[in-house]
Design a protein around this nucleic acid. Structure first.
Lengths: 257, 257
DNA sequence: CCACTATGTTCCACTCAACGGAATAACGTT
DNA sequence: AACGTTATTCCGTTGAGTGGAACATAGTGG
């Protein structure tokens, strides 16, 4: 459970951090001052000053033609510096590729920190109609195959605490009732994989299974995902292939059954 | 040339950005309050408050045992959101793999923004003595094979402006004399690749060549690198393989000779 | 175990840097 | 050209940020 840090903070720094986080949460590649101002409840003058400050340091860039802002190279630098901490990514790459080839669907790798998970890698098939995911975007743990594959294998304390708070409705099919989610998590645990048909993202289907390392909690989750119409009929074919992959990767990462 | 933005900034936000940038510039995975305080010329109280503010928003994490700080998941999120903008990375991956296999050395991909470049991908060989690079760390453009492969192919205006400023001495073999650098850049252009023996990093050798797309400036640079002892004798074998790869990738990215 | 050193964390008096409303500039559309 | 929308700049106001010092914690050596 993400513990809120004690200690004095600086409101201005928190606002700047909110501005940066907004870039990862919004869908477009560029963002305008007014949009951020409304989203964060700050005056346009403040947003503009924050963005200018972040520009000076390389965290955002201004497209002078459109007068909109996008992330800059210092943001990339941050992320890649962090990425060096994630050993599982290089190990998982060939598994993703094999999975994608075998299923002719997109294979993804997710990692979790606290209450959120994010895609950190994906391999997509050559076909034209396929699903692609957004790397780096933070998702809650109750919606979607990859999220549930994490949540199902966390401690009871974590699950109780997580489900004690209001859950975000990502789309019309997102489950937000704790009792229903608990039943689903029990099913995930008994089958070893989670499936999702439109819960996180309308029209998207996925099958996801955890990857374990030395510790009890999953190190990562691998999923196979695609358009929901195809998935209705493919889950039973995909799941065993996926489970074989996650078992092999888990063993490589030091997991002992 | 990176144009300094006009307009009002917020000093506190700039300080927070300096704190985040310090994580990408320092070598260790964790950083202490005093270290940052001395590095940035800020009081320990300010640094502590900035770090606490960034913790609240997920940009840094505190290791409570060591009481040191490291980057957090929001930093990863930022970087991966930016990474989605870089199309060349997925295209280049198989070239890196082939290169690494053919040369039995490490193959790297770099991108540039303004005055700095950074490694965004690498494939390392299975051998034990090999070179690995740090993704995300910003490097200046005058030292090292990959940096020179960028600089040599930028406009004269850019080169003049870049060389008009004091150049950082990365190691004992770094060239900082503009005239010497211009001669080296001319050699890079005539051969099509750049080489480096210990200029960026002592003990490290590399051969690097630019990858072009639709525009005049290089989109990326691919390098092959390893321990300098091996490179003295391998440059002539590696360069033609590297140039073949960068030509094929350039054509795939829409380059026209 | 204790003393010492080094580093992280908290407190609080002081002041100037950050704020926001309004004016201005710039851009796109009709 | 006029209008609507968005980005940028200005400036009076004040409370949020600063930093020096005190306190807490951790590691090391005798």
């Amino acid at each position: 459970m993400a513990e809120q840090p004690q200690g004095q903070t600086i409101a201005t720094v928190e606002r700047a951090a909110d501005v940066l986080n907004a870039f990862t949460e919004l869908d477009g590649a560029t963002v305008g001052v007014t949009e951020l101002s409304e989203r964060l409840g700050l005056s346009k003058a403040v947003v503009h000053r924050i963005l200018t400050s972040l520009r000076v340091k390389g965290f955002v860039e201004l497209d002078e033609d459109s007068r909109r802002y996008s992330l800059g190279p210092a943001s990339l630098s941050l992320g890649l510096t962090y990425l060096q901490k994630i050993d599982v990514r290089d190990e998982a790459r060939s598994f993703l590729r094999d999975l994608s080839e075998q299923t002719d669907e997109t294979a993804t790798l997710s990692v979790r920190r606290g209450d959120v998970r994010m895609y950190v890698d994906q391999v997509t098939p050559s076909r034209e109609v396929k699903m692609t995911v957004q790397l780096g975007h933070p998702y809650p743990l109750h919606a979607g195959g990859s999220s549930k594959a994490f949540l199902a294998h966390l401690s009871d304390e974590f699950i109780d605490d997580y489900l004690s708070r209001p859950l975000e409705q990502l789309g019309p099919l997102t489950m937000t009732d704790p009792d229903i989610i608990r039943k689903d998590l029990a099913l995930v645990r008994s089958r070893g994989f989670a499936s999702s048909l439109g819960e996180r993202q309308e029209g998207a289907g996925s099958v996801a299974a955890p990857v374990f390392g030395h510790e009890n909690d999953p190190v990562a989750v691998i999923s196979v995902c695609g358009p929901v119409e195809r998935f209705q009929n493919e889950i039973d074919d995909i799941a065993p292939v996926l489970l074989e992959s996650t078992r092999r990767l888990s063993r490589r990462l030091g997991w002992e059954a």
